[in-house]
Amino acid sequence: MRFVHTADWQLGMTRRFLGAGRPGQAAGEAQARFAQARLDAVVALGRVATDEGAAFVVVCGDVFESNLVGPDVVGRACEALRGFTVPVLLLPGNHDPADAALVTRRADFARRCPPHVTVLDRAGVHEVAPGIEVVAAPWTSKRPLSDLVADQLRALDPAPSGVVRVLAGHGAVDVLSPDAHDPAVVHTDLCRAALADGRVHYVALGDRHSTWALPGESRIGYSGAPEVTSHDETDPGNVLVVDAGPDGAVVRPVRVGRWAFTRDHATLDSDADLAALDARLSALAAPERTALRLLCEGTLTLRQRARLDDVLAAHVPVLAALEVDTTELVTRPDDADVEALGLSGFAASAAAELAADAADAEALDALGLLHRLAGTGGER
């Protein structure tokens, strides 16, 4: 039996650093494109399900960013789901738990929800089709007081002959969780035991945004988010196509995400280094879908630092976001910096004194201001 395992769509997510306040563009313009990209990823995974001949799609929690998303997010989500040609099962997670405010119980969702979509807000066994069962372990609050996956596994008998059974859960597994005292941590030994005795044939999890499988056991794992959500993720943007049965499972990731939240590092000590950085940024394959955090280190003259500012400013309007850390970058004026100002008399003497005292941050700022003022009338 083949199905698609996905999770953590978090529709309605905002990333306020995306494009905010960029020259020539409205603040948040990149955020709107990012929100659309999350919906595009949902549409893309629907095509994957059709192309792969999947029996169903299971979304293991956090379909929405929260239960408070607006009707526009709900309406667009339902329209994206309408294009699926197979059953879609939505499990409430920690972002959208099945409490009194559950978004999928709202009238605006009920009005637009396609008939092939089922919300797994009731724990236990759900028959998807003859011979196919999904065991749901939904979150009903933000702070569960037990391992919800283990609660469902303990209640199961081995699957009947001819039935393939998938458990859908959400939360951190014990081998990854930093909080050993969290009562909601998913215990992987109990999952292994349930696989071994045939109570379930695959454990589909959500919560971790990077694709991950338990070492030595590919039948327990996270699909990851279908579109990137953070710079800290190692392998987002995938869904999993799973062929599961009593004798095992074959799991294959398929990429649907198109955005990248990346980190880069540049050592800058010369004009050649600056040119290389400019070329590297220019060579990005999809800058409009790239949020970059750049760490710069090294030592530059004042003229070179101005050139760095120009290089970065030229790429800001194109990138989805550019965050630059220059705390490890030293600016050290040289004689050529003072000469390049073209000053005379008292102004020249003041510039020379500032350059001599460039270890002082205020002196360096003042010299930088002089350099910018002197450079406003022509090319730097």
Rank of each mutant, 00 (worst) to 15 (best):
Phe3Gln: 00
Val4Glu: 01
His5Arg: 06
Ala7Asn: 07
Trp9Leu: 14
Phe17Lys: 00
Gly28His: 10
Glu29Arg: 15
Gln31His: 09
Leu39Lys: 13
Val43Gln: 12
Arg47Asp: 13
Ala54Gln: 02
Val58Gly: 05
Asp62Pro: 11
Asp62Leu: 08
Glu65Thr: 07
Glu65Arg: 07
Asn67Tyr: 06
Asn67Phe: 09
Leu68Gln: 13
Val69Cys: 02
Val69His: 00
Gly70Val: 04
Glu79Ser: 12
Ala80His: 00
Leu89Ala: 10
Pro92Val: 09
Ala101Glu: 09
Arg105Cys: 09
Ala107Gln: 13
Cys113Gln: 02
Pro114His: 04
Pro115Lys: 02
Arg122Ile: 14
Gly124Tyr: 01
His126Asp: 15
Ala129Cys: 14
Gly131Phe: 05
Glu133Trp: 09
Trp139Ser: 02
Lys142Ala: 14
Arg143Met: 10
Pro144Ser: 04
Ser146Val: 15
Ala150Tyr: 03
Ala150Asp: 12
Leu153Tyr: 09
Arg154Phe: 04
Leu156Arg: 09
Asp157Ile: 09
Pro158Asn: 12
Pro160Ile: 14
Gly162Trp: 08
Arg165Phe: 04
Arg165Leu: 08
Val166Tyr: 02
Gly171Val: 13
Leu176Lys: 02
Ser177Met: 05
Pro183Thr: 10
His187Arg: 15
Cys191Met: 13
Arg192Glu: 13
Arg192Tyr: 03
Arg199Pro: 01
His209Val: 01
Leu214Asn: 09
Pro215His: 08
Pro215Trp: 11
Glu217Cys: 08
Gly221Ser: 13
Glu227Ser: 07
Thr229Leu: 11
Pro246Gly: 07
Gly248Asp: 08
Arg252Pro: 07
Arg258Pro: 01
Ala266Gln: 00
Thr267Asp: 14
Ser270Pro: 14
Leu274Met: 03
Asp278Gly: 04
Ala283Gly: 11
Ala283Trp: 12
Leu284Thr: 04
Leu284His: 10
Ala285Thr: 14
Glu288Cys: 07
Thr290Gly: 01
Thr299Gln: 06
Leu300Ile: 15
Leu302His: 05
Gln304Thr: 07
Gln304Cys: 12
Arg307Gly: 04
Leu308Gly: 04
Ala314Lys: 13
Pro317Trp: 11
Val318Leu: 06
Thr326Gly: 10
Val330Trp: 08
Leu343Thr: 01
Phe346Lys: 11
Ala348Val: 05
Ser349Ile: 13
Ala352Glu: 13
Ala356Cys: 05
Asp357Met: 06
Ala359Thr: 14
Ala359Trp: 05
Asp360Pro: 05
Ala363Leu: 11
Ala366His: 08
Leu369Lys: 15
His371Gln: 14
Gly378Cys: 04
